[in-house]
Amino acid sequence: MIYNLFIFSKDNKCLYYYEWNRPLKADSLDYEKENLSGLLIAICDFVSKISPIKPSFFKSYSTSSYKLHYYESLSGFRMAILTDPTTGDLTDSLEYIYGELFTNYVMKNPLYEIGQEIKSQKFIYELDLYISKLPFFK
């Protein structure tokens, strides 16, 4: 089951947020948007530093009730998807969202201003369509 998704810029700004299933609503979504990005950067840094085998990069963390999958590009695009803990590796999906959807419908959209919140209807539509068709969506 896929709960929700965050996209952050390299300056920790939340560019996009969407929730498909979120039984426990956020106390403050703004708090989450402002703090999750910084936390993830700290995790990436720490995780790579203590790695017993280099090189190493952060992929996901699991709790008793959810799993957060992380993806980051060299260009500063960063994304976190929260799913139920049984969901496996999402690398392929994350790469698709970045390489096809974000690249084509955000970065190559002449009407999108770089660094701003993502509101492009095509992106939102295609992302929703893609996610809701994933086998582990529900």
Binding site: S73, M107, K108
Partner: peptide, 16 residues
């Protein structure tokens, strides 16, 4: 240029 990088990274899968 700023709009081309992501396509480049996605296609080549280049690391740091």
């Amino acid at each position: 240029g700023i709009r081309m990088v992501d396509e480049f990274l996605a296609f080549t899968g280049l690391n740091k």
